[in-house]
């Protein structure tokens, strides 16, 4: 249990700093290297993502790094589809848990590859006057710590970006992954939000996105306090530390490290599905 706590503390620090949440690291690592059944790990994964997001959210919202206006439509779409994903995931697992374990490994390896090849931009150039973004009021500001200046931001391609959260919600529900791994590229690369806004809004919006899928697993009896509590305590403490370090570190360095861990965890999941 101490090993589980230590593992999840490190997951919490790096999950929030990389803007991917804890779930995407927790599920493949714990299902691959600990003895729990994958149903319990996925249920716990959603509460880990939810818990780490709740721990980080107050600070990020008060600093105006996380945007409530931007998070609301994103989380609404993802949370609705995560219910469908959670139902689908539990059904597939009942057929054969190895299907979920193997598919999880493939998805994790895919996520790591996408993260590796995706050129995240600190300040994307936003062109045009996007009508959906304007209608939803998707704009805001933050204070750049290095210069102390107020930086205004808005987004574009809102319709395309928001539709991407359908897939994000489905995968989050099926695998219990949280959704931060996809939130950042969608918010930053597709919609053009500055990297700090994308990372912080992603970290915050997980608390909304994952709530619905977490309740599906909870109501099916797939939430085990002995797995969730030490893991959640570890991830929350780690996330609190991570959210305070976040404004002071270059996010891309953390991402490189996280990509390496994801590749290892993904490969382990695939091997475990084949009984190795």
């Amino acid at each position: 249990m101490l090993l589980l706590f230590a593992t999840t503390f490190v997951i919490g620090v790096f999950g929030v700093m990389a803007g991917i949440g804890g779930g995407v690291l927790f599920v493949p690592l714990v299902s691959g290297f600990f003895p729990f059944h994958i149903d319990f790990v996925r249920g716990a994964g959603l509460f880990i993502a939810l818990g780490s997001s709740l721990a980080a959210a107050p600070y990020l919202l008060r600093q105006n790094l996380a945007s409530l206006r931007l998070a609301m439509p994103v989380a609404l779409i993802a949370s609705a589809f995560s219910i469908v994903g959670a139902q689908l995931g539990l059904w597939i697992s009942e057929l054969n848990p190895a299907y979920i374990q193997g598919a999880l490994g493939v998805v994790i390896l895919g996520i790591a590859t996408i993260m590796l090849q995706t050129p995240i931009k600190e300040f994307p150039v936003v062109t045009g006057n996007d009508p959906v973004a304007k209608w939803l009021g998707l704009q805001g500001w933050f204070v750049e710590e290095t210069t102390g200046e107020r930086m205004n931001w808005t987004v574009h391609r809102a319709a395309v970006g928001l539709s991407g959260f359908v897939l994000v919600g489905l995968l989050a529900g099926i695998f219990g992954l949280g959704a931060g791994w996809a939130n950042v590229p969608l918010l930053n690369l597709v919609m053009g939000a500055p990297l700090k806004i994308a990372v912080a809004t992603s970290s915050f919006s997980l608390s909304i996105t994952d709530t619905t899928a977490a309740w599906v697993y909870f109501n099916h009896g797939a939430v085990l306090p002995a797995l969730v509590v030490p893991s959640l305590a570890g991830v929350m403490l780690g996330a609190m530390l991570g959210s305070r370090i976040l404004p002071h570190v270059p996010a891309f360095m953390i991402r490189r490290l996280v990509i390496g861990v994801l590749m290892l965890a993904g490969a382990r999941s695939v091997l475990k599905a084949f009984g190795w």
């Binding site: 609301m72 949370s79 219910i83 959670a86 109501n219």
Partner: peptide, 16 residues
Amino acid sequence: EITLVVLVAANWIGAG
């Protein structure tokens, strides 16, 4: 969003 969370938490959709 409130409707979705209430329905799923109350076990009315996605029910176990």
